[in-house]
Design a protein around this nucleic acid. Structure first.
Lengths: 309, 309
DNA sequence: GTTCCGCATGAATCGATAG
DNA sequence: ACTATCGATTCATGCGGAA
């Protein structure tokens, strides 16, 4: 097993997964090629064939996942011929038949969705994050993803909305000070099943003194900050599930890792990764990015040590 | 037909709908009894039987809907035995077999979701709003639901120092007029398929001078404000779809109208309604609420007239 | 060093046109 | 009839250059 860990494998998941032993991975998180998209890199999977293409892979994933592990599938069906396609619904039903439990459907709310205007629909700004498991009692570390409390306190004054403004006018009647102090001792609560990614949350996780044993999140937040936020699969998304569903030194598998986002997230959170990527250019770029990250980590560690001595 | 309009019918939809003529309704919007919930009022529909219970009703709805009309189904499957149930997925597939087009799945993001804590899941804060139609080219009035631009407030208030902000707060101090003028010079854009309800948005719709012929929205917003926001089906939700999918004097049908929310929304937006409610107490309370609203409307109209003369 | 303005750019979708 | 390509549409975000 150890020979597969912390590597990007330039192979096809539908065959490569057979190499991995049973019950060896703590978390699978992936954003597979959507039907009929990314043709250039993956070859088209027609929506009609999507379920039958995915099912054998899902069977292998079920085999390699530890019994208390989780499988997070980020996906969203596209419109086809004016309607939403149904292959994701069919996939869920099929995976259940194959022995997966469908625990939850998280809604990833993407505020910066692609622009456009059409007569029959608005912009699509959410995707499904389907949570499957092998057992009903899987591992979940809810404290690791706590968020700063509440609606209006979430936004600083820089992002003060009109809504908040009005509430000030009517209720606090001009006494701003109290509100500011609310900020400083903000309480942290459990999130819900709508995921709205905000860097600040991660930063505050890292800076928290509540002892939620999340390592290196200051560096983590910095890296996040530098990354391209309009990316398809922003690092915050796998990070959130890695924090929620694994502990340090666990193994995270991404069978369609693309440019390596899941691996970077795992490394930054001190987890091990196994990345599989069919496309050669993607695999290479993933490896390059990971090397870069490791260099940066070493440098940071050195700097820290020098500052102490 | 006219004898059914603008009434709450204390009947069972599964039989009463047969009275309505073909192609007579512009919009159906409803939040049906969820499987195994609201037992007290509806009698339990077991999840296993949910699809077969709903399908005959859906067939009737298909018949009475105008060919360019829409059907909005607000629903969310509950967890059962640790998993999300699949009856909603199965219902979508079945309705498609019955001739409905599944145009879109809107995500209704409920920020004030029901509290609770469980070891294997977070609080459920979104529901599906499934959009079905009879044709692929249905009526849609996107301009009616435009929203203030995302970062307008942010940019605007970022430039103010804290002192400026304080002054702003104290000077306005409950005088709505100042706020209104702020609203007017906000740019407005099309929304996306995640619905986050905020009263202020509707208020701004009503005050807008962009001529989106939405009447009486000041009253509307006032009523909203007085309503209980933790209610299962807040008035903003049907209102949003009524604005999006009908024009004035159109007919809106809710086959499970409960305490009358959809009717109130329709009236406030100058649409006609047909409400069906099996439960006697709910039907009566719906009628009472509508009467109250009509009284209020008359009084407002009178006051307005006196002010002019 | 900051803040601000302008601009390019995205896992997009529809409808029309062409092969 | 079915597939492939292109143009038009739209807005949140990060970046670079300027004040």
């Amino acid at each position: 097993m150890i020979k597969y860990i912390n590597k990007i494998h330039n192979r096809d998941s539908s065959t490569f997964l057979r190499n991995l032993p049973d019950d060896s991975v703590n978390l699978i998180v992936t954003s597979p090629p959507y039907a009929d998209k990314r043709k250039r890199y993956y070859g088209s999977v027609h929506p009609k064939n999507y379920v039958e293409w995915f099912v054998p892979i899902a069977d292998e994933l079920h085999r390699v996942l530890k019994s208390n592990g989780s499988f997070i599938l980020n996906i969203k069906e596209h419109p086809r011929d004016g309607e939403r396609d149904t292959y994701v619904l069919e996939l869920i039903l099929e995976l259940k038949k194959r022995g997966w439990y469908w625990i939850e459907e998280y809604c990833w709310y993407k505020k910066n969705s692609f622009p456009g205007k059409w007569p029959n629909r608005f912009r699509d700004s959410w995707e499904r994050c389907l949570h499957f498991s092998k057992q009903k009692d899987f591992e979940m570390f809810q404290d690791a993803v706590k968020v700063p409390i509440g609606d209006w306190a979430e936004k600083r004054f820089k992002s003060l909305s009109e809504n908040d403004f009005k509430r000030h006018v009517s209720s606090t009647n001009g006494s701003l000070g109290r509100n500011v102090s609310n900020w400083l001792d903000r309480k942290r609560v459990y999130p819900h099943n709508v995921i709205v990614l905000e860097e600040e949350r991660y930063l505050s996780n890292g800076l928290s003194d509540e002892g939620n044993n999340v390592p290196n999140l200051i560096e983590f937040a910095t890296v996040c900050h530098n990354k391209n936020h309009s990316a398809a699969f922003p690092i915050e998304l796998p990070s959130w599930f890695i924090l929620l569903l694994t502990k340090e030194d666990d193994i995270v598998l991404d069978p369609f890792i693309g440019s390596g986002t899941t691996a970077v997230a795992a490394l930054l959170l001190n987890r091990n990764y196994i990345g599989i990527e069919k496309n050669k250019e993607f695999a290479q770029s993933a490896r390059a990015e990971i090397l870069e990250l490791l260099k940066q980590k070493k440098k940071d560690a050195k700097t820290k040590q020098e500052n102490f001595s």
